[in-house]
Design a binder for these strands. Structure first.
Length: 102
DNA sequence: TCTCTGACTTCTA
DNA sequence: ATAGAAGCCAGAG
């Protein structure tokens, strides 16, 4: 639709970029909020927000914190899903050195 | 307009 | 390794 860009459209575009980057993560690998945010050009909190809103359509569980830990609300579920993909974990934290995705 | 909050990160002690 | 503080981005009241 020919229509002047608005702030809301821009935000939606950023969300798409986040989802695209998350979908691009191969199975058995994980990435971090900060890494994705830097690739896209937004802050890590913006990535987390995008996933919390519409992460249901993407492998959000392949996104973990910078230190390998996971978000509280989904921590148990995420650990289960990652373990199912063969992601090595250590005391509740993902072994980023082994599965981190550039 | 201001303030609070959140699936975050990084620095310093 | 743990803890506290500052920074950053966007939505809700």
């Amino acid at each position: 639709m020919a229509r002047p860009p608005s702030a809301r459209d821009f935000a939606q575009d950023v969300d798409e970029a986040v989802f695209d980057a998350v979908e691009d993560i191969p199975p058995g690998r994980v990435s971090t909020y900060g890494a994705i945010g830097r690739l896209i050009g937004v802050g890590p909190r913006r990535v987390a927000r995008a996933l919390s809103q519409g992460g249901g359509a993407v492998p959000w569980y392949r996104v973990v914190r910078a230190d390998g830990s996971m978000a509280e609300p989904v921590r148990a579920r995420q650990a289960e899903l990652l373990a199912a993909e063969g992601v090595p974990m250590r005391n509740g934290r993902v072994d980023l050195a082994a599965v981190v995705w550039p």
